[in-house]
Design a protein around this nucleic acid. Structure first.
Length: 227
DNA sequence: TCATTAAATTGTT
DNA sequence: AACAATTTAATGA
C-alpha cells in the first residue's frame, strides 16, 4: 500500500506513482507550494530560481523577449505540467520568462531534493527522460511554428500544447481556457483568436464552449497549417 | 427553488 | 480599445 507522503505528493504531481514510498517521502518534504496572481511574473529571464516547478492549477506561459523587442511564446503549461529541469540540472539562471496567465498554484521542489532524486530514484529518472524527450519534440515543432503566419495555425498549435498526453496525462478532451488567455498565449488579439476558433470549429477539429473548448481531433489540430 | 444582481466572457464596431 | 450582448455565479427571499 502507498504511504501517506505519496498520497500527498500525488495531489501535486502525477509522477508520484513512479517513486518508491521512501523516495516519495523525501520528495514530499522538498516540495512547497506558492501562489501567483493572474498577470504576475513567476520569474524573469536571468533570475536564479533554483526550483523545479510544477503547475498544480492555473496556466503559465514560457516565453522571452526577442532582440527586436517582440514577445515570443515557447510554450504554454497547464495544470500537471513541470518545467525548469534544465536550469536546475545545470545550475544556471533561467533563460526565459515565466508568467502566470491566471491565478496559479505552483509546486516548487528545492534543488537539493531534485538532485537527490536524480541520483537515487529510477522512477524519477524515467519520468525525466520522457519529459525531456517530449519537450524536445515540442521544441522542434515550435521552430516551425514561428514560420507559421496564419493566425489560425498558431492558435491550433497553442491549443495542442495543452493537450499533450505525455506531458499532461490527466487531461481529457476538454480544458477550461478563455479566448483572452489563448490570445495571451499565442500573442494574438482576442478577436483574431475568436475568429480562428470558429474556423477550427468549422473544420470539425474542436468544439468552442464558453470559457473552454473540447478537442475532437488532436492529431489534425497539432499539425494544422492553415487553409 | 426562484428572482435579482454582479461578474465574466464573447461578439461587434 | 470601447461598448453591447450573453452566459454564468452569487445572493437572498
Amino acid at each position: 500500500m502507498a504511504s501517506r507522503a505519496k498520497a500527498e505528493l500525488r495531489e501535486l504531481a502525477f509522477w508520484a506513482d513512479m517513486l518508491t514510498d521512501d523516495e516519495a517521502e523525501r520528495a514530499r518534504r522538498g516540495v512547497s507550494e506558492r501562489h501567483f496572481a493572474a498577470g504576475s511574473y513567476i520569474c524573469h529571464r536571468g533570475d536564479k530560481l533554483d526550483h523545479w516547478t510544477g503547475v498544480v492549477s492555473g496556466l503559465v506561459k514560457i516565453g522571452a523577449i526577442s532582440a527586436t523587442g517582440k514577445a515570443i511564446t515557447f510554450a504554454g503549461i497547464g495544470a500537471g505540467g513541470w518545467l525548469g529541469e534544465g536550469s536546475v540540472l545545470k545550475d544556471e539562471p533561467r533563460k526565459y520568462d515565466l508568467v502566470a496567465l491566471r491565478n496559479t498554484r505552483l509546486a516548487m521542489m528545492s534543488r537539493p531534493t531534485f538532485m537527490w532524486l536524480f541520483d537515487h530514484s529510477v522512477g524519477f529518472n524515467k519520468f525525466l527522460v520522457t519529459q525531456l524527450n517530449e519537450r524536445m519534440g515540442q521544441f522542434i515543432a515550435t521552430i516551425e511554428h514561428d514560420r507559421l503566419h496564419d493566425p489560425t495555425a498558431r492558435v491550433a498549435r497553442n491549443i495542442a500544447w495543452l493537450f499533450n498526453p505525455v506531458l499532461y496525462p490527466g487531461v481529457g478532451q476538454h480544458i477550461d481556457i478563455t479566448q483572452e488567455e489563448l490570445a495571451m498565449l499565442a500573442g494574438l488579439s482576442r478577436q483574431i483568436v475568436g475568429r480562428s476558433l470558429r474556423t477550427l470549429e468549422e473544420a470539425q477539429l474542436l468544439k468552442v464552449e464558453r470559457a473552454g473548448l473540447t478537442v475532437k481531433d488532436i492529431e489534425r489540430l497539432s499539425t494544422y497549417e492553415g487553409d
